[in-house]
Amino acid sequence: MRVELNLLQSADAASTQFAAIADALRNPPPDLFGPGTTQADGTPVYDTDGERSYVTSRPDAQGNLVYTDAYRMGRVIAIVYTLGSDAEAAKAVRRLVAERIDARAPR
């Protein structure tokens, strides 16, 4: 798992930046997951001020998918990448991480 957090000066600024970041994550740069990797729309596992989820279109050589969740929680933009081959286990961890970030995110 990899977590990136951005704290912005206001919820409005976070909302604007979230829209741009969430769209850009749909087509990750080649150095993020490897060349030729594409993502499909995923199902968000947590409901907050804004959320967008993606999953890699096909598993890697070890059978893993990358689940990418982007959230806006007040002034915070959180991007969470979860690597896993068990979709239900990954879903549980993704939700737990989002809950913990949201509980501490400044509004």
Rank of each mutant, 00 (worst) to 15 (best):
D41N: 13
N27Q: 14
V80C: 00
R75G: 01
Y71G: 03
Y81A: 06
P44V: 09
I77W: 02
I77A: 01
Y46D: 01
G42C: 08
R100Q: 15
L96T: 14
Y71V: 02
A14I: 00
A13K: 03
I21L: 11
A61Y: 02
E51M: 14
V3C: 02
V66L: 01
L8P: 00
D86C: 00
A70T: 14
A103C: 05
Y46N: 04
Y71H: 12
S85G: 14
D47A: 14
G42I: 04
R26L: 02
T16M: 08
D41F: 03
D23R: 15
F18S: 01
D60P: 04
P29Y: 04
R75N: 03
S15Y: 02
A13Q: 03
R2L: 10
E99C: 11
N6P: 00
Y54Q: 11
Y81T: 03
Q39N: 11
V66E: 06
N64H: 12
S15W: 02
D41G: 11
S53K: 06
D102M: 06
S10K: 11
V97L: 11
S85A: 12
A90S: 15
V76C: 03
A98F: 05
V55N: 06
R2K: 13
G63Q: 08
D47H: 11
R107V: 01
I21P: 01
L7M: 05
E99V: 15
L65E: 02
V97R: 13
I77V: 12
T56M: 08
A105F: 01
D49E: 12
T16F: 05
R72K: 15
L65Y: 15
T82D: 00
P59E: 13
V93T: 14
A98R: 04
P106T: 07
P106S: 06
D47S: 14
I77C: 05
E88K: 13
A78P: 03
A61L: 09
P30A: 14
T48Y: 07
A13T: 04
E99P: 10
Y46P: 03
D60F: 08
L7V: 13
A92I: 13
M1K: 13
L5H: 02
S85E: 03
V76W: 03
N6I: 10
